[in-house]
Structure formats: structure tokens, C-alpha cells
Design a protein around this nucleic acid. Structure first.
Lengths: 205, 205
DNA sequence: GTCTATAACTCGATAGAC
DNA sequence: GTCTATCGAGTTATAGAC
């Protein structure tokens, strides 16, 4: 069989890659099918041949993005691990992921904000993450006198904030501190350990 | 003169208020002039009578929002104040402002992301904030052995992140922890002191 | 200043040839 | 599968009466 299965990239792949770029840059409302077609090097009609509508195409992209952004948090809930190790692992994993996909957090946050109703259904398949288990662990560490009293919600917010926010505000930070992309990424690399130690220093007794 | 200057709100005011709502909810691309007109209780044509175009109207709203979101940072640069007091003041001010305008950070971040080129020109009138002065203060405190070594950039990112991020991710946090608006705001009230102490605990020697 | 009506245009989607 | 051509809905913006 002399069939050519080794194309560089299938048309479907090219469309998805282009759509990801455009939706993440412009959001659902700002994205243009023409723009997606251009970047994929094909024409508009073909988009509708592969994905019936703009909505459907968007859902594909959003689904994948949301998966990358949110379920990282599950490390906090699931792993059976001493708290300080958990913090270090979480921060490292999270920032690594963000560095590969720097614009995903803002994209997800933004689209969730525009239609918050059903985001839980869409992202975790209706199930909420097991927050209670994480809370229990923190509670135990506090009672054991290992860490300072702090509500688990606040601790989680602080960690996620310090990991994700720099990416969300990348253009502003880069502008104010006059950073090239390379320098910005170097800073983020530093944060993989810095943020963890910042948190640990703060809660350790 | 029996002229009635005491209308509840001038038409221009009503338009600006409505535009602010809609743009912040939907972003520039997602906003509809019809929607703005409806919420202002007037009709579409009047929007163009007062503000020539959607673009111009957007600029008004964005300008005001950006002013609220960003120049709060100047407390860090300008005030001649011991570092720990500065942290406490900054955090309290910043979170207070965010509580009055919970959706502004996401709105600004988002629009800056879509056209980063000229945001500095638009927001600070071309001048960058005096980052160097803040850096110098931190440097001095480190050398005096008062705080742990940390790059000023990281310290700033951490503070702003912990203040602003919860608002940016409000729908997700509220969803995951099942919080009503009132409960969410109570948490933010707690953070006015909590975040400052979290930072201070972390850097204090 | 405010309204109705409509022009001018953008964009998602479809028809139909190849 | 891929293209060109075009339709039709929805939107910004303008003309013109009051």
C-alpha cells in the first residue's frame, strides 16, 4: 500500500492548532473564522466541513485548555504526602505547565467569567474536587503545631495566585520591568522553587 | 432661572454607567451597543450622538478601569515608609479597591492582553513607574539583615498576585467552595490583614 | 436631545462545482 | 476533501423627522 499516511499534519490538526491560537488570543467573541482559516492555510468553508460551527470548534479548544489549567490543583487533594513536599511539588508542576502554555490561565478565567453557570459541569464533569481532604490535612498540621493557623482556602488561594498570576499579567509585568520573553521565562523558572519556599517560610512554625 | 439641573443622572452618565457594566461583563468584542442602550434606558442612536463610536466609548470605560486597577501599585514606590508598614498599607488599600470593583482586574488584564503594544502609553501616560526606588529600599533592608534575600520583582509579583488573583478567579473559587457573594466578600475582608502578615512572615528574619 | 428607519458592513454558514 | 461564490443574520453607524 503506497498510501501516504505521513503528512506533516492532518488538516484537522492544523485547524485545531490555528483555532487554539486565535481563540486564546482573542477570546470566543473576538475570534474570526476567517483568521483561523488563514492561519491554518485553508479556507473558511473547510472549517465548517470539519467542525460544524464556531461554537463546536471553540468547545474543543476550551475543553483542552481548561483541563490543563485546572486539574493541576488535584495534586493538593490527592497525593498522600507531607504538606511541605506537597507545596513544593504543586508549585513546580503548576509553573512548569504554565510555562508551556503561558496564555491559558487568562483565557480560561475569561471565558468562565462570561458564562460561569455551567463551568463546573464542563470542566470536572459535574464533580467538585475533594476540598475537604486537603482541609483536614492542614487542620492536622496546625493542631500538631507544625504550621501556623491559616484557613485552607486562603492557603490555596495564595499558592495558586502566586503561580498563575504572573502569567495572567505577563504583558504588564514585561512592560513595567522591560523584560524580553526570555527574561520573563527565566524569572518564572526561578519561581518554581522561590514560591514554594515563600509559602513554607510563611506558614512554618 | 427655573432650569432643571437636578436630573437624577445626565444621559451621558447613564450611558457611561451602562457601558461600564456591559464592557466589563462581555469585553470589547462581546459587548453590544444595543445592550448598552437598553441598560441605559435610551436608544442606540443616542449612543453615537454622545460618543462617536463603540471604540471611543470603550476607551472611556477602559481608561477609567485601568486607572483603578494599576496606579494602586504606586504606594509601593512613592511612600516613604518602613517596608512592613508599606506592605500592610498596600494590601489593605488594594483589596479595598478590588472589593468595590471586583471585575476590573480581569477586564483590564484581558484587554491589555489583546493589544499589549500601547498599554503603557495609555495608562501611565508613557511614564513607567519608578521601580528602581522600591528595589533600592528592599536591597537596603536585606543588607541590614532585616528581611530575607528576595528579588524585588518577585516580592511585588507575590503581593499583587495574592491581592488581585482571587477576584480574577472569583467564579471558580465561588464554584469550588460553594460560596455566596457575601461569603466570598467576607473572605476578601479577612485577606486585608491575612495577606500582609503572610508576606511579612515569609520575608522577616 | 431623542427618536425611527435604514444604510453599510461584518461574519458565520451553506450551496455547489471540481 | 477542498475550493469559490453567495446568502442571510446581526451590528455599527448615519439620515432625517420631531
Amino acid at each position: 500500500m503506497v498510501e501516504d499516511v505521513n503528512k506533516d499534519q492532518s488538516t484537522e490538526q492544523k485547524i485545531l492548532a490555528a483555532a487554539k491560537e486565535v481563540f486564546i488570543e482573542q477570546g470566543m467573541a473576538g475570534a474570526r473564522m476567517q483568521d483561523i482559516a488563514d492561519r491554518a492555510g485553508i479556507n473558511k468553508a473547510l472549517l465548517h466541513y470539519y467542525f460544524r460551527s464556531k461554537d463546536k470548534l471553540f468547545d474543543m479548544v476550551f475543553q483542552e485548555a481548561a483541563m490543563k489549567f485546572l486539574p493541576r490543583v488535584s495534586i493538593l487533594f490527592e497525593a498522600d504526602m507531607p504538606i511541605f513536599d506537597k507545596v513544593r511539588t504543586f508549585v513546580d508542576n503548576y509553573i512548569t505547565m504554565m510555562m508551556d502554555n503561558p496564555f491559558i490561565p487568562l483565557f480560561v478565567l475569561n471565558e468562565v467569567h462570561k458564562s460561569p453557570e455551567d463551568f463546573i459541569a464542563k470542566i470536572w464533569g459535574g464533580k467538585l474536587p475533594p476540598v475537604a481532604e486537603f482541609s483536614a490535612q492542614i487542620q492536622k498540621e496546625i493542631e500538631a503545631g507544625k504550621i501556623r493557623p491559616i484557613k485552607p482556602v486562603h492557603l490555596m488561594m495564595n499558592m495558586i495566585a502566586m503561580c498563575a498570576f504572573p502569567f495572567v499579567s505577563k504583558p504588564i509585568i514585561s512592560g513595567v520591568f522591560k523584560l524580553e520573553n526570555k527574561q520573563f521565562m527565566a524569572l518564572m523558572e526561578e519561581r518554581k522553587t522561590l514560591v514554594a519556599e515563600f509559602v513554607i517560610n510563611s506558614i512554618r512554625l
